[in-house]
Design a protein around this nucleic acid. Structure first.
Lengths: 126, 126
DNA sequence: TCTTGACTTAGAGCGCGCTCTAAATCGTAC
DNA sequence: GTACGATTTAGAGCGCGCTCTAAGTCAAGA
C-alpha cells in the first residue's frame, strides 16, 4: 500500500485535509500525484516528507523557513550545505527554547513550593 | 526607587508600553497606581508580578489562563489550592513541550548527520 | 437512476497576542 | 508662553497558522 487519498493521509499524519492542502499551497510540498479524477494521491515518500515538515513545525519553525527548506530540497543535492545551515540554525533555536522552558519551569516549581507551604500552614492553623 | 513610569517599567521588563497597557486591560494586572496626572506608576511589586506573568506567558500559557490565575491571586489566600492546580497543569504542559522539543531535536540531529554524510561524500567524489 | 460522501478550488474567516493609531493631555526645558 | 516628548484612551490593524465555506465534480452503492 503506497497510495493514500487526502483523507487517509490526513488520518495517518493526524492533521486535517485542509491543512494538507494549505501546506501544498504554501509551497511545502510539490508534485503530489493526482489520479485520473484529479484527486491527490499521497505516497509513503510524501507522508515521510510531511512528517519531517511536522517535526520542524511543531518545534517552532515558521512556515516561511519551512518553505525555504523545501525549496532547497527541491533544488537538488548541490545545496546540502545550505540545508545544514538552515537546520543548524533551527537546532540552535530549539535548544534555546528548551533552555527557556527549563528556566520557566524552575520559577514555576519555586512558586508551587511556596504555595504548598502556604497551603500546609493554612491547614495547620485550623 | 520604587516608582516607575510605564516607559521605565517597559524598559526594565523588556516589553513595550503598549503590551503593559494591554496586559492591564486584559485583566492580568490590577490596581496599578496613578499619579496626580493620571499616569501609571509601577512599583517593584508590580514589576515582580509582571515578571511572573512573563514567565508564564513565555512558557506557553495562554492569556486566558493567565487571567484565571490573576483572578485567583486577586481573590485572596483562600484559593491557594486552585492556584496550585492551575500551575501544576501548566507545569505538566511545559514538561510535555520540552519532551516534544527533545524528540524533534533527535530527528533534526539525525537529518543533520545524514546531510553531513552526503556533504562529505560529495567532497570525496570530487 | 439517484443518493451519498469524499474530494476539488479559490478565497474568506478566525483566534491569538500583540502592535499601532489618533487625538488629547501633561510636565519640563528653553 | 511654547515647543517637545512621554503619557493617556478607545479602538483599529496586523501577522501567523490554520480552518472553514461555497459551489462544484466524481465514484460507488442501493
Amino acid at each position: 500500500m503506497d497510495a493514500f487519498s487526502i483523507g487517509e493521509a490526513a488520518e495517518r499524519l493526524a492533521l486535517s485535509p485542509h491543512t494538507l492542502r494549505y501546506y501544498e499551497r504554501a509551497g511545502l510540498l510539490d508534485m503530489v500525484a493526482r489520479n485520473s479524477a484529479g484527486r491527490r494521491v499521497y505516497t509513503n515518500a510524501d507522508l515521510h516528507w510531511i512528517s519531517l515538515l511536522m517535526c520542524l513545525r511543531s518545534s517552532g519553525m515558521p512556515i516561511a523557513n519551512m518553505k525555504k527548506f523545501s525549496n532547497l530540497v527541491r533544488a537538488g543535492l548541490s545545496n546540502v550545505p545550505d540545508r545544514i545551515a538552515l537546520l543548524e540554525q533551527h537546532r540552535a533555536k530549539v535548544i534555546a527554547d528548551m533552555a527557556a522552558l527549563q528556566s520557566a519551569l524552575t520559577i514555576i516549581d519555586g512558586k508551587l513550593q511556596r504555595y504548598r507551604g502556604m497551603s500546609n500552614e493554612n491547614q495547620a492553623a485550623r
